[in-house]
């Protein structure tokens, strides 16, 4: 049987599947339950310095082929992470945990990095998907290479832990944003965050989501994710949590061939439940056994020229 364990930024994962941020990630109990169901690691829902209310409902819906959400990054603030989520998760820690953080200013990101560092995550993930309130155009940090790099630089100074950047696909050249982050000191990436999307309820004659527009995830976005991971891998050679539209073991293998070391999985939970993690892992094993792959290192980035 193939050994599915991988190492990412010096952290060992029993298998490459990692729960993506924002799905089942509110409490330590929930994160532990996802590991019990087979995930190799977990990511917290995005954590803010202070409480953030998020959007009213409807915040999400799905169809056979895609999922749309606008939760609005609701969170209780870093105090809950410090007092509850991390201490409880790290007690009998079942698998590596990635602390995903978000802020709307560079100083906020730096302060939060220091606060999360003290919580003891294995890896810190910067969600640069939030608009930069101090920026010239109020665009999300990860849409502007210079803004993204400035955040990475400020956060890099506050932690020695592996620091990775979660990138948005909503840019014309994701590789150039990744290169700027790498130069500023990022150790790796998580890609992709959701694509822009909107859905209109024709009977109500208005958008379904309370926030009107939202983020697209699920089966339909996999090709965009494969391309983004491929481009980032090619440009930086840094480790990537390849995320977006992974529904089964074969999708996960495909993401690794594009350059993913780990495979982020979120919306799969909608279709297969948390139990789906063990199934995805089993499907990966089956594929490896069929193809005679003994170590996943053999396939990481193998399709990138």
């Amino acid at each position: 049987m193939a050994d599915l364990s991988v190492e990412f930024c010096g952290v060992k994962f029993q298998n490459p599947t990692v729960l993506a941020s924002g799905i089942l990630g509110v409490t330590a109990s929930s994160l532990k339950n996802v590991v019990r169901n087979g995930a190799g690691g977990v990511t917290t829902k995005s954590i803010w310095l202070k409480e953030n209310i998020g959007h009213a409902n409807p915040t999400m819906f799905g169809t056979d082929s895609y999922f749309l959400n606008a939760v609005g990054l609701s969170d209780a603030g870093v105090k809950k992470a410090q007092e509850e989520t991390f201490p409880e998760y790290l007690k009998d820690k079942p698998a590596p945990i990635i602390g995903n953080i978000v802020e709307s200013t560079i100083d906020g990101f730096a302060e939060l990095t220091e606060a999360i560092d003290k919580c003891g995550p294995d890896i810190i993930e910067l969600n640069l998907g939030c608009p930069n309130v101090e920026g010239a155009h109020g665009k999300p940090f990860s849409c502007v290479a210079g803004d993204a790099a400035a955040v990475v630089k400020a956060c890099r100074a506050r932690t020695k832990r592996p620091l990775i950047v979660k990138l948005t696909p909503n840019v014309s050249d994701i590789a150039s944003v990744a290169v700027a982050c790498a130069e500023a000191g990022a150790d790796g990436f998580c890609a992709i965050n959701t694509l822009y999307g909107m859905g209109i309820d024709i009977n109500m004659r208005q958008p379904v989501l309370k926030n009107r527009s939202g983020g697209l995830s699920g089966p339909g976005i996999k090709p965009s994710a494969v391309k983004a991971v491929h481009d980032i891998y090619k440009a930086t050679k840094l480790p990537i949590i390849a995320t977006g539209g992974v529904m089964n073991g074969e999708d996960a293998i495909e993401m690794m061939m594009a350059g993913g070391v780990l495979v982020g999985i979120g919306t799969m939970v909608y279709y297969r439940g948390a139990e789906g993690f063990a199934e995805v892992v089993r499907e990966m094993e089956e594929w490896c056994d069929k193809e005679g792959v003994k170590d996943l290192k053999e396939i990481i980035g193998c399709a990138v020229k």
């Binding site: 799905i23 509110v26 409490t27 829902k45 999400m60 799905g62 919306t267 939970v269 909608y270 439940g273």
Partner: peptide
Amino acid sequence: GVCGQCAID
């Protein structure tokens, strides 16, 4: 079953 808001301890 997606958001995790109603997960119980």
